[in-house]
């Protein structure tokens, strides 16, 4: 069951490579931000925030597990 769910979820990522090509037309997008690489700054900052929140969540999880063991 676990393996099946994992396989299903990661199959959603397949086929990334051939979709990079993008037709440029007149619609305004954040192309400059991408060209000069500033977008990576945004992604880095958000990743750090997400990482921090997830570490906090894991620490709470561990603390509860410890208490559960003590209560038994």
């Amino acid at each position: 069951m676990k393996k099946l769910i994992f396989a299903f979820v990661f199959s959603l990522f397949l086929g990334i490579n051939h979709l990079w090509a993008q037709s440029a037309d007149k619609i305004e997008m954040a192309d400059t931000m991408r060209a000069n690489g500033k977008i990576y700054v945004v992604v880095a900052v958000l990743s750090i925030v997400l990482l921090g929140i997830l570490i906090y969540l894991i620490l709470i999880d561990r603390k509860i597990t410890k208490l559960e063991r003590e209560m038994k």
Partner: peptide, 13 residues
């Protein structure tokens, strides 16, 4: 987060 910002999206008005 990473794919959401870096992968291409359709250019729509």
């Amino acid at each position: 987060l990473i794919g959401g910002f870096l992968l291409p999206v359709p250019r729509l008005a």
